[in-house]
Write a protein that binds this DNA or RNA. Structure first.
Lengths: 151, 151
DNA sequence: GGAATATCGTTCGTATACGAACGAGGATCA
DNA sequence: TGATCCTCGTTCGTATACGAACGATATTCC
């Protein structure tokens, strides 16, 4: 019962067809969208994830130069500038020149920004909890460990 | 040797401080950034991940209405319009009214778009491979399974 | 048939995201 | 000291991303 073989046949067993919906990038984009949606629901639409990243970073470690702040929050120089500008407009952060380096602009939380950030911290923790809610406890640590390896 | 208890003390053991760099959202954003960077290196800067998503989806399943296409590629109506417009300008897709529904605009690959997509398929597979390269084989399946649960 | 409702595509405004280019300031080293 | 190189902040242009509102068309239901 052997099949007749022909030169045109490809001998490879089941060459996987490209399926967009199975690619990491596509799935990760969807997961990120869901996360942002949860963020907006819980934190309110007046603060974005990147803006929160800046506030949280400044709250944790105090002020730093604008470019360094960008590196710490995973934004390039152009992006962090826009974010800082918008936080400045809302007076949640304040800036001053670095006395030790004329190129640098030090960004730090304003007193109002400190209060604002402190009040939002519990909500931020909830965002993470809700995002990870579909996973079992041990799966959450696994996911985070795997994602860290992809950075 | 019991500690004197006071009303101000919190009895909880080791309240976890909020650390931005340990939150899924932040880590996922970094992983996504790395992925896009790999995508741009391999696919060339003349095509974005979302544009590729549209081409790949149309290549797999043929034309569909613009809004449906957006849902299939995880973009809202406003976003998919911009993406389709830019692909139209490059003549990689073409549109026509749906004869069965006067509201719908059918989007499909142009002949040039079919060729273009077919040529890029191997590179798209490479993008996924390179993105997942830091992980062991079994970890890759785990990561994808976990991300799918977060959508 | 006709009214309420839903979907489709479009437009506007705002916010990331990032490559590229630029001038000003700082560091290195001959 | 001076030339070279690097870093910092800024600006421009392009591309997602999405809420909100709008008119046009379909569908549903009475």
């Amino acid at each position: 019962m052997a099949r007749p073989s022909s030169a045109a046949e490809t001998p490879e067993p089941a060459e996987e067809a490209y399926d967009l919906t199975e690619q990491v990038g596509f799935i990760m984009r969807q997961a990120a969208q869901r996360h942002v949606s949860i963020f907006n629901e819980i934190m309110g639409s007046d603060l974005t994830p990147t803006q929160w990243a800046v506030l949280a970073r400044l709250y944790q470690d105090g002020g730093s130069s604008q470019n360094l702040l960008g590196r710490q929050t995973a934004m390039d120089a152009a992006t962090i500038k826009g974010v800082v500008d918008r936080l400045l407009k809302r007076k949640l952060v304040q800036t001053k020149p670095d006395p030790e380096d004329g190129r640098r602009l030090i960004v730090e939380l304003s007193p109002a920004g400190i209060d604002y950030t402190r009040e939002l911290l519990p909500k931020a923790e909830t965002v993470t909890k809700v995002t990870l809610a579909p996973l079992a406890t041990n799966q959450r640590a696994t996911l985070i460990a795997l994602l860290k390896q992809l950075r």
